[in-house]
Write a protein that binds this DNA or RNA. Structure first.
Lengths: 187, 187
DNA sequence: TTATAGATTGACTGATCACTCTATAAAATT
DNA sequence: AATTTTATAGAGTGATCAGTCAATCTATAA
């Protein structure tokens, strides 16, 4: 890891544990093993660091989702892959997943550029559009389908991290809950 | 409003807009129209204020849910009432609803006593238990049902606040989405 | 009327924090 | 080899903030 990565990793760890307020930049630098000034060489301000960390984390998630994407698949399988990959990534990267949610309910969210937002929702939006034009979903507003999907992932995730199931049982739960979701949203 | 309430109202408003970090106690006192010291007369520390505000807000929501509770109703209607009341309260109290979520993804959550947590989930837990013992739900873990329910409310709420629908259309959406949820969870 | 307790004030303080600045080393470019 | 650019360090600074404190006011009880 180079120093920039060290700083990001340290910031993530401390933000999740102590919140944005509770973690001074000095502690981040210390945890990262760099000098105070080095942090500000890579990130102009603390807020810059927070927003950059968010975009970087979202990029990681999106890269993981794209890995399982297969244009040959049916729409249902494409959605299932995204659903499964999202939850798997969340389980394998709990601090990162928590950080994303923490960020969403912070004033820093307003600092994310609209291009970055677009980039991070493109995949979902495309899939939903396809499903609607193929007349697969129940007659509901696209935004509502998207929100319900997000809420479902959120709810199932909360459950999965609150229980100690074997990875196999977790995979099974993810399969089953996708079945519930799909049945709820499609005709 | 007495001074304690003024302080809570000011804190809520500022926390939602600027985050816990971004709002100094001095600004809260000013917004509330009281002296600095008065804030610390009612709340020993800033953290105390944050946690007290959370418990107070949750109490408001719970009181509202209990208003529509009717022991005579069927289980389905009891759940529907809670679902509808939750969303209606959220729409009528956006800052309060946002604050609850913001708090959930903050380190302050750990400071809520287990009694307070129990108090605030009792109603839901009771209903779920009843549904399970009456064999109404699909064979899923109780915790999972609860999490999916929470996720569904969360998702539908995000949709409702992101669109400008008439109150009638919103009520209709709430009805419809309860139907989806109920069909998904029951046999 | 007096005594006591609680409410309210706002100036003050010690600590902390984000960020700067200067110096130096390393790397890249000419 | 000379020069410019980038990386790194860490002491230093001005501002800010949570919380204190002594003084005053208010209300109730004795």
């Amino acid at each position: 890891m180079n120093k920039e990565e060290e700083i990001r990793a340290a910031a993530l760890k401390l933000f999740v544990e102590f919140g944005f307020h509770g973690t001074p930049t000095s502690k981040i630098a210390k945890e990262a093993g760099v000098a105070n000034g080095t942090l500000f060489h890579y990130f102009k301000t603390k807020e810059d660091l927070i927003v950059a960390l968010y975009n970087h984390t979202k990029d990681s998630l999106n890269r993981h989702l794209l890995e399982t994407y297969n244009a040959e698949n049916t729409l249902k399988d494409k959605m299932k892959n995204i659903y499964v990959s999202s939850l798997e990534w969340g389980l394998a990267h709990k601090p990162e997943f928590y950080f994303i949610q923490q960020f969403h309910f912070s004033p820093h969210l307003a600092k994310v550029s609209s291009e970055d937002i677009e980039k991070q929702t493109r995949l979902h939006v495309e899939l939903l559009r396809a499903g609607i034009s193929e007349n697969i979903f129940k007659p509901l507003p696209a935004q509502l389908i998207s929100s319900i999907l997000g809420g479902h992932v959120y709810g199932v995730y909360q459950y999965l991290i609150s229980t100690q199931l074997t990875p196999e049982k977790k995979a099974e739960m993810i399969e089953d809950t996708f079945g519930l979701l799909w049945a709820m949203l499609t005709k």
